[in-house]
Amino acid sequence: MGTGHAHALYVHEHSPIHHLPPQVKIAGAVAFIFSVAITPREAMWAFAIYAVAIAALVRISKVGFGFLLTRLIGVLPFIAFAFLIPFIASGEQVDVLGISVSRDGLWASWNIIAKATIGASTSIVLAGTTEVPDLLAGMNRLRVPTLFTSIAGFMIRYLGLIVDEIGRMRTAMTSRGYDPRWLWQAKPIAASAGAMFIRSYERGERVHDAMVARGYQGEMPELRRRDPSVQEWLTAAALPALGITVMVIAMVAT
């Protein structure tokens, strides 16, 4: 988490994008995704430009195309759903490879696939070039309430411990002959989920005690603060500037 090697979403590299302050990266990514999302779906050329921009981003950030494709698997459920739309949707029908499908449905399907893929790719590059604590600090700097970012931070810090604990509980069950195969054997798992809840709750109380003991008064101190230079803001603005320009032209043209 802290040094990078600990987190699956992060690619440990040194690139100009890695070195940008997190808040400018987050702002840039969000603005770009927003402009992609409102680009008219008929402007196919616009999406081609977006794809090229993403490719350039992957190149500059040294995140790697293999990494991008592996992480894009997460978008597959949405794409699978999008594939169904042309068959379900009503309206004017057209023939594709001998199958009659809805024209509107085809557009809707393309819209979802193109925008989801570009949006997800942007956030994969963002996560691949920014360590989790920096992402959270960046969100803080963009005035996301500290309550949210500290909850996320604690969740990430203690997730590993909870997973370990579940593993130990599972081992303890197995070593006493519990080897579930059928649904009706699930009761001990449900019970252990309850036990995990109580244990996590108690840990939460102890962590809070430890924080209060060191002077915590409800606000996390800002330890990773770095104010970006104008140059850095301009660098990060390149991507959304392209996105917005393309989006505006596409809107006017269609």
């Binding site: 988490m1 802290g2 040094t3 360590e131 989790v132 604590p133 931070g153 604690f154 810090r157 203690y158 840990r203 102890r206 962590v207 005690d209 430890a210 924080m211 060191r214 915590y216 101190p221 330890l223 990773r224």
Partner: peptide, 14 residues
């Protein structure tokens, strides 16, 4: 329970 920050350094700084 005592080490809740992303790195040891940040924890000591808390």
């Amino acid at each position: 329970d005592q080490l809740f920050m992303p790195t040891v350094g940040e924890d000591v700084a808390f």
